[in-house]
């Protein structure tokens, strides 16, 4: 069978073009980490909650503690290795006045308290979420996760994984400054 010139050209170019398109699509797919799910709660208000204490003789952490200023809500647990890695940097942030709030997720409050005694306590308020109810309401998939909550008490960002100096300087700090400026 004899093909016309354009048909021959199309027949030879089409597979190459198809390969090119597929290569780009699949390569883009490889750059995407499937374990970091985008939060569907961005822009939504933090749900109501009232968590029991982690620290001894404390009142815990509840919804009313948020709002009025931009805050960070950090989900952690004494069982969580990456949280321990993140902890020294949280201490550093807390010492510069960053308002950190803690949710001790799926953890025995005594274990959480022990960790805070051992590594230091960066939280203005911290509550225990052993049943995981609040964390489920927040769509938490793992620890650590940190939510940026604006002055109206709405979730504006979710950081999945530890807050590193890079994450802080590139993402969280600029966002907090923007939110504080009232944007």
């Amino acid at each position: 069978m004899r093909l016309s010139r354009p048909a021959l050209l199309a027949a030879s170019v089409a597979p190459l073009a198809l390969f090119g398109v597929l290569a780009v699509v699949l390569w883009a797919g490889l750059q995407h980490d499937p374990s970091t799910l985008p939060s569907v709660l961005i822009g939504k208000p933090v749900p109501a909650f009232d968590l029991g204490p982690v620290r001894e003789g404390d009142r815990g952490f509840r919804r009313d503690d948020l709002g009025g200023k931009v805050t960070l809500v950090n989900v952690w647990g004494s069982w969580c290795g990456a949280c321990k890695m993140e902890h020294p940097y949280l201490m550093q942030l807390a010492s510069t006045g960053v308002p950190l709030y803690g949710v001790d997720w799926k953890d025995d409050p005594a274990d959480g308290a022990k960790t805070l005694k051992l590594l230091g306590d960066p939280y203005q308020r911290v509550g225990n979420d052993q049943a995981g109810r609040l964390s489920l309401d927040l769509g938490v998939t793992g620890a650590p996760e940190t939510f940026v909550v604006d002055r109206q008490g709405r979730i504006r960002y979710k950081q999945i994984g530890p807050i590193t100096p890079e994450v802080w300087h590139d993402t969280l700090q600029p966002l907090i400054q923007r939110l504080e400026a009232g944007q």
């Binding site: 499937p34 799926k106 049943a131 489920l136 793992g142």
Partner: peptide, 22 residues
């Protein structure tokens, strides 16, 4: 959402348990 290729009925992850209970 932890072990993403399993359904929560099959998964032994603690979060899957929370979701089943929910």
């Amino acid at each position: 959402v932890v072990c993403q290729n399993q359904n929560i009925d099959d998964s032994a992850a603690p979060l899957a348990r929370d979701m089943r209970l929910m």
